[in-house]
Design a protein around this nucleic acid. Structure first.
Length: 486
DNA sequence: GGAACGAGGA
């Protein structure tokens, strides 16, 4: 097996020859790539600083800086170095959005010192912090398993010069709910609703939270309570409940609820129908899904891309890819624009049917259609190639990711690493070790399980030296979950 | 890249 190497950033390849998009900002991605490569390849900080601050080749602007930071997303420390150097530029001052990128990156690296330095600087520049700044910080804290700390930060926002209001309160509740900490969100809601004057949105957020963790009865309680307190549920509220029923597999209740909505002449929208099509379909009631899909226009509701995607998924899962492709073609004829979700669904469907070659043809079609393959496209291709034992092909896709401008994520590495355990070849495990190192290097934290698995694999196949190296990495970086601190 | 609902995930 060939050695794994760090992926290079996408090189200059601004436009595919098959698309005919006029490029108004075409120099921008190119310049961002050049800046990112410069940052990555210049070892000496002083030299980098000098080039960035004095070179006439670069005219920094907010979009250029943001693009560069995005390209450096997998190289957090380098990204922050770039941000800090540029902060001393004589003719360029960072904007709020660039600060937000930098804050997000430092939070992701769990570098709280830098994080709060940036917030303080934002304040001294009178650019912020804004509610969005705190939404970013709070979300990162919640994602790293510190919801209490996140709440504490919310409650201390005003000390940083940003007053809490109903919007930011609802955002906090939503972040907690989306990370499945619904109980905590609900308690906080009950505690502080008086203070912030909770509204329909607050109730919707909490009801949706309960539905997300499949506790639809609790969502119904919230609905009942909001009515008792004089708030009128909206269509969004009803759509939330409807989806809740499908999440718990209660198709009967969903249907009754829908009929009740109709009876009360509630205005349905495209979200309602998309929920129904998807809900019935994935639960096996394909013909009912199809009927709703066909009849919605008669009810005065036009489908959109999401609706088509729902129907396509249903056909892929419960009918056949071929029929899904028929619908996809019909969709194009009717003028609906497929997006990357559409393509990913069809590609997955083809992979699942064992048609890897046709799946790759759809990837080409996707690109020609101006839809870039994204991480999910790559991950699913890699997964299926590895599953059928073509690890080399999976690695090929991995290597192609750079030229497709998509960055590998934690899942990409996990898929590839797990696949190396199938054949039990010593060289596969060495590859796993390299991937693990690269993964850590890019700021993705492997689980203890992954570490141990790779290490055991190396020990069993006689790679003692490499195993020791991995162990050192593990302890040096303090990467065991119990050492995590944000 | 932002207050709430629908369509790709081990």
């Amino acid at each position: 097996m060939r050695p794994m190497q760090l992926q290079k950033l996408p090189l200059l390849r601004p436009f595919s020859t098959t698309t005919v998009k006029p490029p108004p900002l075409k120099s921008l991605p190119a310049t961002a790539t050049a800046v990112a490569n410069l940052v990555l390849t210049t070892e000496d900080p002083k030299a980098l600083s000098k080039t960035l601050l004095t070179s006439p080749d670069f005219t920094f602007s907010e979009p250029l800086v943001n693009q560069t930071l995005k390209l450096l997303w997998n190289h957090g420390p380098k990204a922050l170095q770039f941000f800090t150097i540029l902060d001393n530029h004589l003719h360029y001052a960072h904007s709020l959005s660039s600060f937000h990128h930098a804050i997000d990156i430092s939070a992701r690296l769990r570098d709280i010192t830098t994080l709060w330095i940036l917030v303080t600087r934002l304040r001294s520049r009178r650019l912020g912090p804004t509610p969005l700044t705190f939404a970013i910080i709070i979300e990162r804290y919640v994602l790293s398993g510190k919801p209490d700390k996140a709440v504490e930060i919310f409650l201390s926002m005003h000390k940083h010069g940003c007053q809490q209001d109903l919007n930011s309160f609802n955002t906090l509740l939503d972040i907690l709910c989306k990370s499945k900490r619904v109980e905590k969100a609900h308690n906080l809601f009950k505690l502080l609703r008086g203070k912030f004057g909770a509204d329909v949105v607050s109730y919707n957020v909490i009801a949706n939270g309960w539905c997300l963790i499949k506790r639809t009865p609790k969502a119904l309680e919230v609905l009942k309570e909001m009515v008792e307190r004089g708030f009128n549920p909206t269509l969004i509220t009803y759509n939330i409940i409807l989806k809740g029923y499908f999440r718990t597999g209660q198709t009967k209740e969903a249907w009754l609820f829908f009929k009740e909505m109709k009876k009360r002449s509630c205005e349905m929208d495209v979200v309602t129908y998309t929920t129904l099509v998807h809900g019935f379909g994935v639960l096996g009631e394909v013909s009912k899904a199809r009927r709703l899909f066909d009849e919605m226009v008669g009810e005065g509701v036009l489908p959109n891309t999401a609706t088509y995607n729902a129907m396509i998924q249903v056909l892929c899962k419960k009918d056949s890819v071929e029929n899904a492709i028929v619908l996809f073609e019909e969709m194009g004829r009717k003028g609906y624009v497929p997006n990357s979700v559409t393509y990913n669904l069809l590609i997955r469907g083809l992979c699942h049917a064992g048609e890897m070659d046709r799946a790759m043809k759809f990837v080409e079609l996707m690109k020609n259609d101006g839809c870039h393959p994204n991480v999910q496209t790559c991950n699913l291709l890699i997964k299926y190639y590895c599953e059928v034992g073509e690890i080399e092909k999976g690695l090929e896709v991995f290597d192609l990711m750079g030229s497709w401008r998509c960055l590998p994520n934690k899942d990409t590495y996990n898929i590839l690493i797990s696949s190396t355990f199938v054949r039990k070849k010593p060289e596969d495990l060495v590859a796993a070790g390299r991937l693990l190192i690269e993964m850590v290097d890019r700021g993705f934290l492997p689980t203890k399980f992954t570490f141990n698995r790779v290490m055991n694999g190396l020990l069993v196949t006689g790679n003692q030296a490499f195993a020791r190296e991995i162990l050192q990495l593990q302890s040096k970086r303090g990467l065991l979950p119990r050492h995590f601190r944000l």
